[in-house]
């Protein structure tokens, strides 16, 4: 078995199994803890505060005007590289073909040249994110191994992907194999660290937003 077959064969299967089981266990471990019923009379109706929770998913995507001067740039940086990543992952033709082989559906992609430009911009923004993490006293203080390793493994996926696209440093099949192996490692790490925020972000905004709206408080 060559490296590419290994990377997209048994390695990917194991990584996906760990990813799925780990994500389910990580969520179940807290979701199965005691849920306290709020016995205080709500100010708003159930319909209204659940609706407000859903609304919070959108409103927390950007800072309230009172905060924007202090946090707008940082949030713009964060959202920009996330959007770049999504575009590259979901709209790059080889990715679509690969995902199609896994899930059986395909969709139109963007030209390779456009994807390459977006990938380079995203990679640059991702470097800026690391720079910010190590230079901001607040973020540096909050950061731990999880933050840096999650950054590193995501960066590795981006760099190996760009190297494969540009065919730099080795044979194409080897570069693709290394890229897929890096994705395997990312999937293996995913349930153990902060990458889980991909699953948490919308429910977290909605639940906390609904709880605040139940009291008639701003969210």
């Amino acid at each position: 078995m060559d490296l590419l077959s290994f990377a997209r064969g048994p390695a990917l299967k194991v990584a996906l199994a760990v990813f799925c089981a780990g994500v389910v266990w990580r969520i179940a471990a807290f979701a199965l803890l005691r849920i306290r019923r709020d016995l205080n009379r709500p100010r708003n109706s159930l319909f209204k505060y659940l609706g407000a929770g859903l609304y919070t998913i959108g409103t927390r995507s950007w800072p309230h005007p009172e905060f924007i001067r202090r946090t707008g740039a940082g949030e713009a940086l964060g959202y920009s590289y996330h959007m770049g990543l999504f575009v590259v992952v979901l709209l790059f033709a080889p990715h679509i073909a690969f995902l199609g082989s896994l899930f059986g559906i395909t969709w139109p992609g963007l030209p390779n040249s456009v994807i390459t430009v977006i990938a380079v911009i995203s990679l640059t923004l991702f470097l800026a994110v690391l720079f910010r993490r190590v230079t901001s006293p607040v973020i540096r203080m909050l950061s731990n191994f999880d933050d840096y390793f999650s950054w590193f493994i995501t960066m590795l996926v981006m760099v190996t992907g760009l190297a494969a696209t540009a065919q730099i440093g080795a044979r194409y099949s080897t570069l693709v194999a290394v890229h897929i192996l890096s994705v395997d490692v990312l999937l293996l790490w995913f349930p153990f660290g902060k990458l889980m925020h991909a699953f948490y972000i919308f429910p977290s905004r909605a639940i906390n937003g609904a709880i605040l709206a139940r009291k008639g408080a701003a969210s």
């Binding site: 990580r26 807290f30 979701a31 940082g74 964060g78 901001s136 607040v138 973020i139 203080m141 909050l142 950061s143 731990n144 933050d147 902060k194 889980m196 925020h197 948490y200 972000i201 429910p203 977290s204 639940i207 906390n208």
Partner: peptide, 10 residues
């Protein structure tokens, strides 16, 4: 869930 959700953005 709240403790789990923090992404250390500061």
């Amino acid at each position: 869930f709240r403790l789990e959700s923090c992404i250390h953005c500061g």
